[in-house]
Amino acid sequence: MATKRKNRVKQDIGVNLVINIFLILAGVIALYPVWFVLIASISDPTYISRSEVLLIPKGISFSAYKLLKNYPEIFIGYRNSIFYMFVGSFICLSGVLPAAFALSRRNLVGRKFWNTLIVISMYFSGGMIPTYLLHRTIGWIDTVWVLIIPGFFTAYYLILARSAFQELPETLYEAARIDGSSDFRFFFQFAIPLTKAMIAVIFLFSALAWWNNYTRFLVYIDNPNLQSIQVVVKQITEKLTSSLSNAATFTEQVEAQKTKELLKYSIVVITALPFCILYPFIQKYFNTGVMIGAIKE
């Protein structure tokens, strides 16, 4: 046994080294842009332009973050996105979980019919324009409803939840039945508490999707008081890029340009911040979520 292990080690030592070095390199490269944005947002732009800020911040100041208060729309967008994140995810769960539970019951009348409709909805869609026109016909454009009400149904989350409910032992259901539990009661008292991990996964997926969503707000929302952080960020960075400063001298212009870049760095930081901070704590949920989905397919 010992000699075998030794042989193995000898043979694989080079390969292991190459693999590990490559993996560390990949991790560092993946983190670097995020790190650079962070240190650039608190460094003096003069040092950045001289490429002296590469690994650690230099000339630390938080002036860019102080300038952000000139952009109240960022705070409105931030507030709105937090609202959408929680309310939207709650709506999503309150539609998806009960339906997934019902569809996980093998004796449900019309089970096959509904399951087929769900699968078809994943592969074929009416597309952007008919959906938009439908919402316009209902009269929902530029309201909160157009954003959160369709969330009652999301095919992917529904399939995730359904497979988790299907894994509950059938005997548990039978036992509860014999003891006189109704479907409602079983759902709320047994099914939900027993699938907490899956519910957390769907909540996180949904919350992240809401925080990062751009297109839906772009298409349906005009009112700046309802706009999400992502669209606000896009609008501000675009304005910063295209606007010409009214600075007179060349040096003043360069200074203005640097401030703009600094502002962009700090806006990126505060937009990406919530999930980057939470990430170490929620990472395991993301991995399990993907795996539940993978097993089912």
């Binding site: 309150s94 539609g95 998806v96 009960p98 339906a99 539970f101 019902a102 569809l103 019951r105 004796n107 449900l108 009348v109 509904w114 409709l117 769900i118 909805s121 074929f124 869609s125 009416g126 597309g127 324009i129 008919p130 959906t131 026109l133 439908l134 009400i149 369709p150 969330g151 009652f152 149904f153 095919a155 529904l158 109704s182 479907d183 409602f184 759902f187």
Partner: peptide, 28 residues
């Protein structure tokens, strides 16, 4: 099974309205 159907309805209604009506809408 009315209880199961009560649980099923909101999501299926949303699916029919927001996915299948637009699918019909491609006739435009």
């Amino acid at each position: 099974q009315w209880q199961l159907y009560a649980l099923l309805t909101p999501a299926m209604f949303a699916m029919l309205l927001f996915h299948y009506v637009p699918m019909y809408g491609v006739i435009i």
